[in-house]
Amino acid sequence: DRIFMTRTEALEFLLKAHQTAVDKIGHPSHKQTPADHAAIEALDRLLLDVRARRVDQFQINASAAQIIVTD
C-alpha cells in the first residue's frame, strides 16, 4: 500500500509516531530495551531527513504502508 502526503503531513505523522514511541518507553509498566531507543533514534533521523528534503518516501516498519511525500 502507498499513502501520498504533503511534506507537512508527513512531518506531523512522524512527530506523532515519535511521541508514541517516547510515551511507550516512558510508561512505568514497559521495560526499556535497546531496540526501543534505536527506534526513536531512527525516527529522529527520518524526521530530519524528511524536513531537509533528503527523503521523499519512507516506511516506518515492514508491515506499514509506504509513505510518499509530495510537494
Rank of each mutant, 00 (worst) to 15 (best):
L46Q: 01
R7P: 03
I40E: 02
L15A: 14
Q57H: 14
I40G: 02
M5E: 00
L11Q: 02
I67E: 00
A35D: 10
V69H: 01
A35H: 08
H30A: 09
Q66T: 11
T6A: 03
N61Q: 09
D56W: 09
A10E: 00
V55K: 04
L48T: 14
P28H: 08
E12A: 11
A52V: 05
L47M: 12
K24L: 11
M5D: 00
I60E: 02
Q57C: 11
I25F: 09
L48W: 04
L43Y: 03
D23E: 14
R2A: 12
D36H: 05
D56C: 08
H27K: 12
I3W: 06
K31D: 10
R2F: 12
M5N: 00
P34F: 08
T33N: 14
H37Y: 13
A39V: 13
R54E: 04
T20P: 01
V22L: 14
A52D: 14
R51D: 05
H30P: 05
L47I: 15
R51Q: 14
Q59H: 08
P34Y: 06
P34T: 10
D49G: 11
D56T: 14
F4S: 05
L47V: 06
Q59R: 11
R7F: 12
K24D: 05
R54L: 12
M5Y: 02
E41Q: 12
A64V: 08
P28T: 08
A64Q: 11
V55E: 02
R53S: 11
A35C: 05
R2K: 15
Q59G: 03
S63Q: 13
D23G: 11
D71S: 06
V69Q: 02
I68D: 02
F58G: 00
H37F: 14
T8N: 12
L15M: 14
V50K: 00
V69T: 02
S63R: 11
R54A: 06
T6P: 03
I68W: 07
F4E: 06
L43S: 01
A39S: 09
D23M: 04
L48R: 15
R7I: 12
D44G: 14
S63Y: 10
A39D: 11
H37E: 11
E41H: 12
I60A: 03
K24N: 10
V55H: 01
V69W: 02
Q57W: 09
H27S: 14
P34C: 05
H37K: 11
A17H: 06
V55Y: 02
D49S: 03
N61L: 08
T33Q: 10
H18S: 04
R2D: 06
D44A: 15
G26I: 11
L43I: 13
A42F: 14
K16F: 07
I67K: 01
A64W: 07
H18L: 15
G26Q: 15
L47Y: 09
E9R: 04
L48M: 12
F58T: 00
L14C: 01
V22W: 04
N61D: 12
K16N: 11
Q32F: 12
L15Q: 14
S29D: 14
V50E: 00
D44V: 15
D23Y: 03
T70A: 06
R53F: 05
R45D: 04
E12N: 10
A64P: 06
A17W: 08
Q32K: 13
M5L: 09
Q66N: 07
L46G: 00
L48N: 15
V22A: 07
H37Q: 13
H18R: 15
Q66C: 07
K16H: 11
A35Q: 12
D36V: 05
K24P: 03
A39Q: 13
S29K: 10
A64L: 08
M5F: 03
A10Y: 01
V55W: 01
D36W: 06
A64T: 13
F4K: 05
F4T: 07
R2I: 15
I25A: 09
K16T: 08
A38M: 10
Q19C: 05
R7H: 10
D71M: 04
F13K: 03
Q19A: 13
V22D: 02
I60N: 02
I68Y: 08
A52T: 12
D36S: 06
E9T: 03
R53T: 04
E12S: 15
I25Q: 06
K24F: 08
A17L: 14
G26M: 15
V50H: 01
D44C: 07
D49N: 06
H30K: 07
Q66G: 04
A62S: 11
L14A: 00
T20V: 12
T70I: 15
K16D: 09
H37C: 07
T70D: 12
E41G: 06
T6W: 02
S29H: 11
R45M: 08
R51V: 10
V50D: 00
A64M: 13
A42P: 01
Q59N: 05
L11P: 00
K31L: 12
L14T: 00
A35M: 10
R2S: 10
H27E: 11
D49T: 02
A42W: 13
D1P: 09
H18D: 00
E9M: 06
I67V: 10
R45W: 03
V55P: 01
L14Y: 00
A39E: 13
D49V: 03
H18V: 13
K31W: 09
L14Q: 00
A21W: 11
E12Y: 06
I67N: 01
A21R: 04
T8K: 14
K31C: 05
I25W: 05
L48G: 13
A21T: 07
N61E: 12
A64S: 14
Q19E: 07
D49Q: 07
A65W: 05
D56G: 08
F13A: 05
D71W: 02
E9N: 04
V22F: 06
I67L: 02
N61M: 10
R53M: 09
A52N: 12
Q57S: 14
Q66L: 15
D44T: 15
L47A: 04
E12T: 05
Q32E: 13
D1R: 00
E9V: 04
D71N: 06
D71V: 09
I67Y: 06
V55C: 05
G26S: 14
T6H: 03
V55L: 08
A39I: 14
A38C: 05
A17Q: 10
A21H: 07
A65Y: 10
F13C: 05
L11G: 01
K31S: 13
R54S: 05
R45P: 00
V50S: 00
A39H: 11
F13G: 01
A42Y: 15
L43G: 00
V69F: 03
Q57I: 13
Q66K: 11
F13P: 00
L14M: 01
A62I: 10
V69E: 02
L11R: 00
R45E: 05
L48I: 14
K24E: 10
L15E: 15
D71R: 06
N61P: 10
K31N: 13
L15G: 09
T70H: 10
L47C: 04
A17S: 05
H18N: 03
T8V: 13
A62K: 11
L43C: 02
A52K: 09
Q57V: 13
V69M: 06
S63T: 12
P28R: 07
A38L: 13
V22S: 08
D23S: 12
R7Y: 14
A21D: 01
E12V: 05
A42M: 15
R45A: 09
M5A: 01
A17C: 06
L47S: 03
H18P: 00
P34D: 11
R54G: 03
Q19P: 01
F4L: 10
A17N: 03
T70Y: 09
H27A: 12
A65G: 06
L11T: 03
Q59S: 07
E41W: 03
L43M: 05
E12R: 08
I60Y: 03
P34I: 09
L14G: 00
